[in-house]
Design a protein around this nucleic acid. Structure first.
Lengths: 256, 256
DNA sequence: GGACGCGGCCGTACGTTGTACGGTACATTC
DNA sequence: GAATGTACCGTACAACGTACGGCCGCGTCC
């Protein structure tokens, strides 16, 4: 059952259908393997992704993997590339404001991190030399920001801001149920919030007055509103700078 | 010894630990081991930190480690705790502005990530259940922000912003020389920048016009100025919200 | 046709990892 | 001295990444 009709270009997803016409056809492609690896890492956690388990899931021998990637490190790069390549920006409106462009990019980044929880770990644990699709995402995002009216240097800074914000946000908590404990049943969203609330409420008041006092806000730290707050900060600043006609976000003390 | 993070009053972790009123004295303490582990991870990289190498560095047998920590996971938490506990805020001025408070906190976070490059990886790769010193850092930072005039809910959001920004920033590149390649001698700052510049300059122009055009800005993405830009965004927004008298950063569409 | 070579596949094996198990050595208490 | 409890660690094992080399079906050349 290792043969899967060996026609990989059925949906025209990849342009590198066959590397060369030497010898036999390969049953798989590097991209299919990377995609499956990403699925496994997102479902079961990056630390459960081993070369053996991946090969087993693909129905191939363990060492066959090394015919497609030279090391496990290499496929981690490919996985990050795969995920970044699936960045889904909504189609561009003709007269998009800087705020709309920023919020669209931010939402796309956030959804990417939610859909692929493992890439935050991958990007954090690797040096990530020269990704391929990452350049494509950079180009598309920066172009989108510039077309909305943001000057180039400021658009680059905004891209960096959003990427760092989304990445840091995904890294900050990563509340995957498989991470700690085996109580899969009781790890829903509201129950986790309730536990956090009780934790903050039970802290010694003389030592942590602020944490106890602000427990209602603290449990919202990993929430959507916190993410939006960061995006709002960027939007306001960019709007100010664009209105002032400054080409970048250099921090000079302007007098209003 | 900055905090009470000793192992004696840890109630729920291990029930079999009686530190005194027992047989012999222990040669080490859990905190000393965590500190040494943090040094090793920062110097040689987190992936080179093994239980064996750590024990060898401490001059103890491998299994002796498990008399202080129940698993390697546990010491990763302790290392993050150790690093967070060493957060160094400058002493508070009596009438500190919100901007000054935010910039002080941001600088402390940034220096922490620079001094301990491994904690970004630790925080990203772990679920990090209930750190001890992290609560202390949260309390101190949020209190500092509130004392500068920022309302409590907004101070919490600002704390989250700064933590996420610093963490994401540290995760984004992590340009450690030991990460890739063995050319330790030629991996200084300016040389790396030059290589990046040439990379962007050599991209195919029709495919990546923005990246080629903005290559001078792009190589500054992991730089200090990009970090400051994010902080500036927060400062401006907080100043606006405080001036408007809003208790938090909820994104209502204000009419100027 | 036969021989050859080549490339995709993978079984086996090796070194390293985290850590369970049990033994040793010594201080304290009968 | 005997008993007990604790700190320490040598050995062992499963799981990991992956080097090595063999098998096998195909294209090519005689």
């Amino acid at each position: 059952m290792t043969r899967v009709s060996s026609d990989m270009n059925d949906d025209a997803s990849t342009s590198t259908s066959r590397p060369d016409a030497s010898g036999r056809d390969r049953a798989l492609s590097a991209e299919i393997i990377a995609r499956q690896a990403l699925v496994l890492a997102d479902e079961r956690g990056l630390e459960k992704l081993t070369v053996r388990s991946l090969a087993s899931e693909l129905g191939i021998g363990t060492m066959t993997f090394y015919g497609y990637y030279r090391s496990k490190e290499e496929i981690l790069d490919a996985m990050a590339d795969q995920a970044l390549g699936s960045l889904a920006l909504p189609s561009s409106e003709p007269d998009e404001s800087p705020r709309q462009a920023i919020e669209n990019v931010a939402t796309a980044f956030r959804e990417l991190m939610i859909e692929h929880p493992s890439i935050a770990q991958i990007l954090s644990s690797r040096v990530t030399d020269s990704p391929q699709a990452r350049r494509g995402a950079m180009e598309v995002v920066i172009d989108r920001l510039i077309r909305s009216g943001i000057p180039g240097p400021l658009a680059v800074k905004s891209y960096g801001f959003l990427m760092v914000h989304a990445l840091g946000f995904a890294s900050y908590q990563t509340p995957r149920p498989w991470g700690r404990g085996e109580t899969d049943g009781g790890t829903d969203e509201s129950e986790l919030r309730r536990q956090q609330w009780h934790f903050y409420a039970s802290l010694p008041l003389p030592e942590f007055p602020r944490l106890v006092e602000l427990r209602d806000e603290l449990i919202e730290l990993p929430g959507e509103e916190q993410f939006r707050f960061g995006v709002e900060c960027l939007c306001r600043t960019v709007e100010d700078l664009v209105a002032a006609g400054l080409p970048d976000g250099r921090a000079d003390q302007e007098a209003p």
